[in-house]
């Protein structure tokens, strides 16, 4: 009862006399976060770097992960509303992959930790160095759900325009890295890459911004180096 009285003044108005107020201040998504927390520790202990890849449909999430697969030892968890189109692509190039379709969860527009936890526990057994969760293509909803990842990588393509960071701020404030894809289209779209970087940094000054073009094979190298560095930092933190 002590705790109740302590928080009373924060509510602005107290409960009426015939009710008892249970003060919580608890996260609504606690059930999700508990599972995410467990996954985070599993992956951290095994030294596997877990990345949550988010972005609009068609922004180039699959293409980016396929390009990374040539340089890194990876496994992939594919999240889509329906179909196995993307997971077949990964299976063809020999990447361990698990498909999660959200149509069994009411065609959800995002992934939640309890839906994918079992699959992530399975993927880690393939002994990859990196696991990529390809979230459902969406620039709003996935940002609210923690999946236990080390890195929140937002894939954003040139044709989406430079103004989206201020139009869809939740995703951009929560991302730790933004990969700007289809940069070869910048001249056609008349989009200034520097202007885009500025508009991202305006709402998230600490974010890492990298660029990628599927037409230029060398453009993947900085992203590979960046992710390898991140994993090395994780391994160093384990041994220290």
């Amino acid at each position: 009862m002590k705790r109740m009285l302590f928080f009373e003044h924060l509510e602005g108005h107290g409960p009426s006399e015939d009710v008892t107020r249970i003060n919580l201040g608890k996260n609504i998504l606690q059930a999700n976060d508990e599972v995410a927390h467990e996954i985070f520790h599993l992956y951290t202990d095994r030294g596997v770097f877990l990345t949550n890849v988010m972005g609009s449909p068609g922004s180039g999430k699959t293409t980016l992960i396929k390009a990374l697969a040539k340089h890194l030892k990876i496994a992939v968890l594919e999240g889509d509303i329906a179909s196995s189109v993307d997971s077949i692509e990964f299976a063809k190039i020999g990447v361990p992959v698990v498909q999660v379709n959200t149509d069994v969860y009411g065609s959800a527009c995002h992934l939640e930790a309890p839906w994918i936890a079992d699959k992530l526990r399975l993927l880690v057994e393939y002994k990859p160095e990196f696991v990529f969760i390809e979230n459902v293509g969406n620039l709003v909803c996935p940002s609210d759900f923690n999946l236990g990842e080390h890195e929140r990588l937002l894939v954003y393509s040139i044709p989406e325009g430079f103004d989206k960071p201020i139009k869809y701020p939740p995703m951009f404030t929560k991302a730790t890295t933004v990969v700007l894809t289809k940069v070869d289209l910048a001249p056609v779209m008349e989009l200034d890459i520097e202007k885009f970087k500025q508009s991202v940094r305006q709402i998230n000054p600490n974010v890492q911004i990298l660029t990628f073009s599927a037409k230029d094979e060398d453009s993947i190298s900085p992203i590979v180096t960046y992710l390898e560095g991140k994993r090395q930092a994780l391994l160093n933190s384990l041994s220290s």
């Binding site: 509510e11 409960p15 015939d18 009710v19 107020r21 919580l24 201040g25 998230n204 000054p205």
Partner: peptide, 26 residues
């Protein structure tokens, strides 16, 4: 300055639950 940091605004919280008093649930 555009050198700013996001502090809060992501909250999804249950603040309180008001339960009707009845003799057997107190």
């Amino acid at each position: 300055s555009s050198n700013v940091t996001f502090i809060s605004g992501n909250e999804l919280e249950i603040q309180y639950i008001d339960v009707e008093n009845s003799t057997n649930n107190n």
